[in-house]
Every structure is written in C-alpha cells, then in structure tokens.
Amino acid sequence: MSPGARRALAWLHRFEDGLIAVAVLVLVLVAGAQIVLRNLFETGIAWADPMLRALVLWTAMLGALAAARENRHIGLDIVTYFARGRFARVLRVIALGFAAVLSGLMAWYSITLVQLDLDSGAKAFAGVPVWLVEAILPVGFALLALRLAVQALLPPPNHAPVPEIAP
C-alpha cells in the first residue's frame, strides 16, 4: 500500500473513532442531563429520549465498523478456532464471505426502509427526519460488507494466539 493510501486510511480510521467518541459523549451528557432534570426538577428535554435511541443506533453501527476494521467483530465460526492450515483459511473465507453477503443484504433491504420513511416525511425528534436517523443502516451495512469481504480475501491477522490442542 502506498504511503498516501496509508495516510488516507489512517485519517479515515481517526475520523470513525472520533465520530464514535462524539456520539458516546453526547449520549452520556444528554442522558445525564435527563436524569438530573427528571429527578431534581421533575421535567426533562422532550426530544432527548428519541435522540438517545438514534445515537445508540449510530454508535452501534459505527462500533461494528470499527470492530470489523480491527478484525475484532463477533465471530460465530468456532470451527475455525480449532482448524489448522489451509482448511482453517478456507473456513475463514467462507465465514467472512457469508457475513459479508448478509451485511450486503441488510444494506440492500435497509435502503427500502429509508426510502419509505423519506417518502412519509416523518420526524424522529426536534425536526430531524426519521430517514436521516436510519441512513446509517444502508451506509453502515454496505461498509461492513465491504470490510468483511476484503478481510475474507486477505491473510488472517497474526495478533490472535492459536490454541494448542493436546494429543
């Protein structure tokens, strides 16, 4: 990979991490404000709860992208944990390929959801349209599918210890 591409990728990773950090910070601050306002003043911010739900959705999707980037996503491929050599690589490609296909399907079908809410004109909170809140779904799942597909084609990372099985 060229130095320019490495710098661009590093910038993208920092940007993603920054978005996650800002979303979590806003989550904590707004949720804390809601708690204080409700318990001490018997009031609250009307749009805070729907906004918090939207931020949880965005944080979850951005977190999944970061986990996939670092190859630390949830793996349901226990067979590959015990397999060795070429067989393990084949199983890894199958598992990541399957996850990429499912993520791609989720992206495809979430476009329909976003389109329905775009057409409805519904608002999520404080005048923010529902489709804008949901827009993370097709974008996030498409990027997740891309990352998983690329990982399926690349050699596995060496940061995970391989378990030794006694004879």
Score class of each variant (00 low, 15 high):
residue 153 L to F: 10
residue 79 V to Q: 08
residue 7 R to F: 06
residue 10 A to V: 11
residue 72 R to I: 10
residue 13 H to S: 10
residue 50 P to Y: 01
residue 102 L to H: 13
residue 124 A to E: 06
residue 78 I to G: 10
residue 144 L to E: 03
residue 156 P to W: 06
residue 3 P to L: 06
residue 30 V to M: 08
residue 22 V to Y: 09
residue 154 L to A: 09
residue 24 V to H: 04
residue 98 F to M: 08
residue 68 A to K: 02
residue 43 T to E: 06
residue 142 A to R: 07
residue 156 P to E: 13
residue 153 L to H: 09
residue 13 H to I: 01
residue 44 G to F: 00
residue 69 R to I: 01
residue 70 E to C: 09
residue 118 L to W: 04
residue 118 L to V: 09
residue 17 D to Y: 09
residue 66 A to H: 05
residue 167 P to G: 11
residue 20 I to K: 04
residue 161 P to M: 09
residue 112 T to C: 08
residue 112 T to V: 15
residue 146 L to M: 10
residue 85 G to D: 15
residue 143 L to M: 04
residue 97 G to L: 09
residue 155 P to E: 10
residue 166 A to C: 08
residue 83 A to K: 01
residue 134 E to P: 01
residue 93 V to H: 07
residue 139 V to I: 13
residue 102 L to T: 12
residue 102 L to N: 14
residue 106 M to N: 13
residue 56 V to F: 02
residue 3 P to C: 12
residue 164 E to G: 04
residue 92 R to H: 11
residue 158 N to P: 10
residue 86 R to N: 14
residue 59 T to Y: 00
residue 87 F to D: 15
residue 118 L to D: 08
residue 126 A to Y: 00
residue 72 R to W: 11
residue 60 A to S: 07
residue 111 I to N: 04
residue 114 V to R: 00
residue 72 R to F: 15
residue 115 Q to G: 15
residue 10 A to N: 15
residue 31 A to D: 02
residue 116 L to K: 13
residue 128 V to P: 03
residue 143 L to C: 03
residue 105 L to T: 09
residue 54 A to G: 03
residue 111 I to K: 00
residue 155 P to Y: 12
residue 88 A to L: 07
residue 73 H to V: 08
residue 53 R to W: 05
residue 137 L to K: 01
residue 164 E to W: 06
residue 164 E to M: 05
residue 158 N to A: 14
residue 103 S to K: 04
residue 103 S to A: 15
residue 33 A to N: 12
residue 65 L to I: 01
residue 131 W to R: 02
residue 166 A to V: 11
residue 5 A to P: 14
residue 126 A to L: 01
residue 165 I to P: 11
residue 5 A to H: 14
residue 8 A to N: 13
residue 55 L to M: 07
residue 18 G to L: 11
residue 132 L to H: 00
residue 4 G to E: 14
residue 75 G to Y: 07
residue 65 L to F: 01
residue 100 A to V: 04
residue 102 L to D: 10
residue 56 V to S: 03
residue 107 A to M: 04
residue 55 L to F: 01
residue 35 I to P: 12
residue 74 I to C: 04
residue 134 E to K: 00
residue 139 V to Q: 04
residue 13 H to P: 03
residue 39 N to D: 13
residue 52 L to S: 05
residue 159 H to I: 08
residue 98 F to C: 12
residue 143 L to E: 00
residue 155 P to C: 10
residue 102 L to C: 13
residue 109 Y to H: 12
residue 57 L to P: 02
residue 22 V to L: 15
residue 58 W to D: 00
residue 129 P to N: 06
residue 76 L to P: 01
residue 156 P to N: 06
residue 89 R to A: 05
residue 75 G to V: 04
